[in-house]
Amino acid sequence: MKLGVFSVLFSGRSLDDALDYIASKGLEAVEIGTGGYPGNAHCDPDTLLADAGKLKAFKHAVESRGLMISALSCHGNPLHPQKALAKEHDELIRKTIELANRLEVGVVNTFSGCPGDHEDAKYPNWPVAPWPNEFQEILAWQWEKKVIPYWSEIGSIATNAGVKIGLELHGGFSVHSPGTLLRLREAAGDAIGANLDPSHMWWQGIDPVQAVQILGRENAIHHFHAKDTTIDPINVNRHGVTDMQSYSLMLDRAWQFRTVGFGHDLKVWADIISALRLVGYDYVVSIEHEDGLMSIDEGFTKAVQNLQQVLIREPVGDLWWL
């Protein structure tokens, strides 16, 4: 395995400064945003696709520092019921797949998106209960008319480009759990897999080790984010896990994101890393820091220090004791 970071954390720095800092921490990989919710501070697909020289220079900037690009990330909602927003995010996904192909990057990360509840809807609708029965009707319409057709097409485009799609399992979107990811993968093809982030499993009540096992047995983990979550034992009983309060209200929220090791101890993280190795995932563990109690530098540095202790790097080799 290799240790990396989602570089949007350093969007305030130039690309060269960000890469120098990342390399100075001993990391081996970088995940780079191309637009959508993460922004494109370090990587504008339109610019790089239009100029072969700039594309070559961009790739050299990363590789000359001993780094690799683990994924290009363009998180958005290509299924948004507002057609203009859906088109914008769809076009970005297609451009990012093309850019990944040219850069020889194997994974594009994004969200599945979430449609509305009918063709003329204005906002996404995320059903989370099977009753009243209209919720089931909405869910069936979304998957049959929007989710499966769209991702079947994108999966085919990605396959032809030699690229895998890593959908981040995130609340508010149609694909948010191992089960919903596998449902889509079965319908849309093996190019569709997970960008698995344990932080979103914990707040949904899903054990990340089990999520790794479930998805890994299907070879459905294409990328991995390293981010932690803590659940407040008092506030969760007041607000539930679908707490809608702002992330800034950390004292009152039911749960909040933390840097690695500050929501769950390193034994838990060692179990997650071991599960990844067990199911054959030996790609990049990409740090995503969204801890409201720590600065960018401190949160990132502590995540690096903690993960360096539990990351499994070397090939297993022969079982010498047998």
Rank of each mutant, 00 (worst) to 15 (best):
S177H: 05
L182S: 02
N306S: 10
L319N: 02
G12Q: 14
L139K: 08
L251F: 15
K164E: 09
P124M: 09
H239Q: 04
D318R: 07
V209D: 04
G179C: 03
K83F: 02
N109T: 14
A50Q: 02
Y283R: 09
R183L: 06
W255G: 01
L99F: 13
V175A: 03
E137V: 15
E290R: 15
A71G: 03
V62P: 04
D20E: 09
K267F: 14
N109K: 05
Y281L: 08
D44A: 11
Y150W: 15
P149G: 14
Q308W: 13
H80P: 00
G33Y: 11
P81Y: 03
H289N: 10
L55D: 01
H176E: 09
L72P: 01
V260M: 08
E28G: 15
T259R: 12
K95Q: 14
N125G: 06
H42V: 11
L3Q: 08
M250H: 11
E168A: 06
G216N: 04
F257K: 08
V8M: 15
E144T: 05
N237Q: 06
S246A: 10
G216W: 08
A158Q: 01
D243Y: 08
I32H: 10
M294I: 09
W143S: 01
H225F: 05
A18S: 15
D190N: 12
E119W: 13
G36F: 02
E144R: 13
L181R: 01
K87R: 06
D44C: 12
E290G: 11
S152H: 13
K302V: 09
M1Q: 11
L48K: 10
V236Y: 03
I273F: 12
A270V: 06
